[in-house]
């Protein structure tokens, strides 16, 4: 996993609640056996007017000019501003893969679907929970100012405007923060405890042998 360093990025607003992972990356694109290449089909049913299928050349598709990510002012956005329960539904990790592949490095929302939240952290995509009132302010700002940017400082756990006029603190588990800042993958860390896992497994086998038969 890449290290998550301090980020200053353009913000794109997605002003709807309960955005599910089916919307983030529709099912027909889950047939891929790769981890990459999902960005072109991010929010496919909203970004395009025709129905997308795997392998179709994106340059030949009919773009939906009304969808927010298609507007010129949001091109190159790295921070997605969203509403409550973003990423609810299916466990598909293709959702954070698609967001990352498209260029997003952080998503700000009042709440997230839990599995999406975990999946994002494992892919260096930072899900940031801010208060509903704070998210509301940011929606106002991003709508009011072309080229509205935010600074995400993971070390300090603060999201701020570039002029530092506004700053919002956010929480993150210390363990997750450590992994993101250092680009550590979980498996390597867990395997430092091989002996403890083996000891647990032996005790578990002794107390519930039917689980191992």
């Amino acid at each position: 996993m890449e290290k998550f360093l301090k980020l200053e990025g353009l913000v794109a607003p997605l002003d709807r609640a309960n955005v599910d992972t089916d919307a983030i990356i529709p099912k027909q694109f889950l047939k891929s056996i790769k981890r990459s290449g999902f960005g072109v089909n991010l929010f496919d049913a909203w970004r395009f007017k025709d129905v997308g299928e795997p392998g179709v050349d994106v340059s030949k598709r009919t773009v939906n000019p009304d969808f927010v990510l298609n507007q010129s002012r949001y091109q190159g956005a790295q921070i997605l501003l969203a509403r409550k329960n973003f990423g609810c539904g299916s466990s598909r990790e293709h959702a954070p893969w698609a967001l990352s592949d498209f260029g997003f490095k952080a998503v700000i929302a009042p709440s997230f679907g839990e599995i999406f939240f975990n999946n994002s952290l494992k892919n260096g995509l930072l899900p940031i929970v801010l208060r509903e009132s704070e998210v509301e302010q940011l929606f106002s700002d991003v709508n009011a100012f072309d080229g509205f940017k935010l600074i995400v400082n993971l070390e300090e756990q603060v999201v701020s405007t570039v002029d530092l006029a506004k700053a919002f603190a956010f929480d993150i588990d210390p363990f997750r923060k450590h992994c993101l800042l250092n680009g550590l993958d979980d498996i390597g860390l867990t395997l430092q405890h091989v002996d403890q896992i083996k000891q647990f497994e032996e005790r578990h086998r002794a107390s519930q042998p039917w689980l191992f038969s």
């Binding site: 466990s91 598909r92 599995i115 494992k122 498996i187 867990t190």
Partner: peptide, 21 residues
């Protein structure tokens, strides 16, 4: 019993464990 993402599938395959809150 709960759903996990693909990175966690790999984690369970490799370690038989999951990191959880």
């Amino acid at each position: 019993a709960h759903g996990i993402g693909t990175s966690e599938v790999e984690h369970v395959l490799a370690t038989q464990c999951l990191v959880q809150k």
